[in-house]
């Protein structure tokens, strides 16, 4: 045996909460994207643990899909950050309050 299943879930919850703090508290779009990455990593850890608990391969398959979705999300998110930076000259999300195109 490795550890009780609850400990894996607690670790995943801690990682997820750290990512959430990063998304909410930081005022830099790059750091917000990093927070989303951390949250996805926490979800992947939870999936791995539950796949091992029930001895099914579905958990690991979903970790694979999380990897693909994270890659897509990061590439689109970063290019949006780049776009916003070119238009407004800042990566602070509080400065994007002008609706003029």
């Amino acid at each position: 045996m490795i550890v009780p299943y609850g400990h894996v879930l607690v670790l995943a919850g801690i990682i997820f909460c750290l990512g959430l703090v990063c998304v909410v508290a930081r005022r830099n779009l790059i750091m917000v994207l990093i927070g989303v990455e951390i949250m996805m990593n926490g979800a992947a850890i939870a999936f791995m643990g539950s796949g091992l608990l029930w001895q099914r391969l579905e958990g690991q398959a979903f970790v694979l899909f999380i990897l693909g979705i994270a890659a897509t999300e990061v590439s689109v998110g970063l290019v949006l950050v780049l776009h916003a930076y070119r238009r407004s000259g800042s990566v602070d999300p509080d400065t994007y309050n002008v609706l003029k195109g």
């Binding site: 045996m1 490795i2 009780p4 609850g6 879930l9 643990g49 091992l52 608990l53 391969l57 690991q60």
Partner: peptide
Amino acid sequence: AVFSDPSGSVPLNLTMVTPKEFGRFV
């Protein structure tokens, strides 16, 4: 939620999934 669930204290057993098995499954 984690610790009131009885499956939270189930110990995880050591297994290994080979890439071949995993690829076939997916």
